[in-house]
Design a binder for these strands. Structure first.
Length: 409
DNA sequence: CCTCCACCGGAAAGCCGGGTCA
DNA sequence: TGACCCGGCTTTCCGGTGGAGG
């Protein structure tokens, strides 16, 4: 028997795996018809020689903002080419292109100017871009995705872009800003806000039924016939709907479920695979967050995993004592309890630990801490850090302290 | 009803690394 | 280049508090 026979004989679940990835931009967006219609309407002046208003789009992650805009952009450019309308669209993700300089340089490049990616004064690049737009007479549509990432560093750039029209004779610039941060608006300078959000478009979260439609549509493209057990799509949709109606999460869940089924060489994606996928996504998220924690927080969390192995719940004071012990073992300066208290709140909001502030009457008021996540997984992730390696030596000793509740200084 | 525990959590100031500007 | 500024992290200080026990 050839080593690969098993793989060859197993039923192929995937027809096209990429359809389920974030980067995939479908031709067809269920339940976004209204937003597409509005966007098309708002942008139509571009094709008729007018100037559209600037547009501000917001909605939570996974509500189809980017996909919708990209789809409309694609259609716009096609039709512009056909009509010779001279519309140029540029999509910029501000998480990657994250300074005023880079935004302008990207635009310059799109217009055929050769601007180095660093080095020039920002206002010179601005002048260059302006001249390029003016001389080519294009109608430039700039999409700034995740614009909230830009605001702190480059508020001025946004401002100058929103005002560029007054300096142009025979060209036009229109801006679409996209943000998933609803608080973003309150951070923004009022001048900018008013010109940026002449029109607003809100993308509401999907509900379970809508997510189901989206998943069905993708599943048809992604999987071979008959590999889905009944109820799998519904379950994925329901779970994602509970978590704020994020289509990206729903698709992730379906993809991971399929991957698990594939790995188990099952011929069908079953409910149990979805359950496993939920667990896996959760753990992966946890491990990733723990990995990226700063050192002090890692030590603190490590202390808590040690305590958690012998007692279900404990208090800030107890965690702090163990934490201090560990710090001295590896000669790291311990933080104050005030600071640790903040770190604990952060860990809580990250969902790594669960804590409630309770009063034990005579015995004070404190945060009661539990660790609901898998302690072993946490420990493993923490021990990856070479700076915590040393602590394994003291594990037993420290655990004893935690168990006996001997908290001396 | 009052006390008093063991911490919470706000305010403000200090420290530090990085970036900016003359 | 050095003065300066900024934002993030941390410390210091301190007023506040729910409820068991008296």
């Amino acid at each position: 028997m050839n080593l690969f026979d098993k793989v060859l004989n197993s039923v192929n679940i995937f027809k096209n795996r990429d359809v389920l990835r974030h980067s995939y931009a479908p031709e067809n967006l269920p339940h976004r018809e209204e937003q597409i219609r509005q966007l098309v309407e708002l942008l139509s002046p571009l094709l008729k020689g007018g100037t559209p208003s600037n547009i501000f789009i917001y909605g939570k992650t996974g509500t189809g903002k980017t996909a919708t805009v990209k789809l409309v952009l694609k259609n716009l450019e096609e039709v512009s080419k056909r009509l010779n309308a001279n519309v140029v669209a540029q999509y910029i993700n501000c998480e990657i292109v994250d300074t005023a300089y880079r935004v302008l340089a990207t635009l310059a490049k799109r217009l055929g100017k050769n601007v180095p990616m660093t080095g020039w004064p920002t206002d010179q690049v601005y002048e260059d871009v302006k001249n390029a737009i003016e001389s080519s007479g294009v109608k430039l549509l700039v999409v700034l995705d995740e614009i909230d990432k830009l605001v702190k560093r480059a508020e001025e750039a946004i401002y100058s872009l929103t005002r560029i029209n007054s300096e142009l004779e025979n060209a036009k610039v229109c801006i679409i800003g996209i943000s998933n941060n609803l608080k973003f608006k309150s951070f923004l300078d009022a001048r900018i806000l008013s010109s940026l959000s002449e029109e607003e478009l809100v993308f509401p979260p999907y509900n379970a039924l809508q997510l189901e439609d989206i998943l069905k549509q993708r599943a048809e493209m992604a999987f071979n016939e008959g590999v889905l057990e009944d109820g799998v799509i519904q379950l994925c949709a329901a779970i994602a709907a509970q978590e704020h109606g994020d289509a990206r999460k729903a698709l992730d869940l379906l993809r991971v479920s399929a991957e698990i089924a594939e790995r188990e060489s099952d011929s069908k994606i079953r409910i149990k695979h979805v359950r496993k996928a939920v667990k896996k996504i959760e753990t992966d998220y946890m491990v990733e967050t723990v990995r990226t924690l700063p050192l002090q927080t890692k030590i603190l969390l490590y202390s808590m995993t040690l305590i958690a192995e012998s007692r279900e719940k404990f208090t800030t004071g107890e965690a702090y004592c163990v934490y201090k012990k560990l710090c001295s073992k590896i000669s790291v300066e311990a933080l104050t309890q005030r600071r640790v208290s903040d770190l604990l709140s952060e860990l809580d909001s990250l969902g790594v630990i669960n804590s409630v502030v309770i009063s034990k009457g005579r015995y004070g008021r404190t945060r009661e801490i539990r660790i609901d996540s898998d302690v072993e997984v946490l420990k493993k992730a923490l021990e990856e850090d070479y700076r915590l390696q040393e602590l394994k030596k003291y594990e037993e000793e420290t655990k004893k302290i935690a168990k006996l509740e001997v908290f001396e200084f």
